[in-house]
Amino acid sequence: MSATIHNIPVRPTGELFKVPDGYFERFTSELMMKIKQTDAAMQREKGRFRAFSKFYERLRPFVSAAAVLLFAVLLSHFFYVAISDDSGISVSSTAVSDNLTDSEMADAYTYFITEYDAFYGIDE
């Protein structure tokens, strides 16, 4: 079929573009190899994710129990601190006081009194 653009018969009778010899055979085999490799990689990824999910499913009750325990500990600590002192700072720590000797406690008390007097300008 002949057609013209601006009176120029340009429509080619055959195909204008050629390809290298054996191009389509090569293209098909290379493409299929690429597809299979990509699929295999995806399967491996899926397998890994599935294994992790399975492991997590087994672990979940323990994780939940640990979370509940941690929450309970934090909650009890919060209440302990709140009840011990209105300012929110616990002043009675048995662990600390047990380790201090009487003289150390007396020193600490003297230091506190001195600082207190100095701060408020109280003379002895």
Binding site: I5, V10, P12, G14, L16, K18, P20
Partner: peptide
Amino acid sequence: DPYFDGDELQARLQ
């Protein structure tokens, strides 16, 4: 281009 089978006119159309 060795993979182009057209003449000058066809190249110009392209």
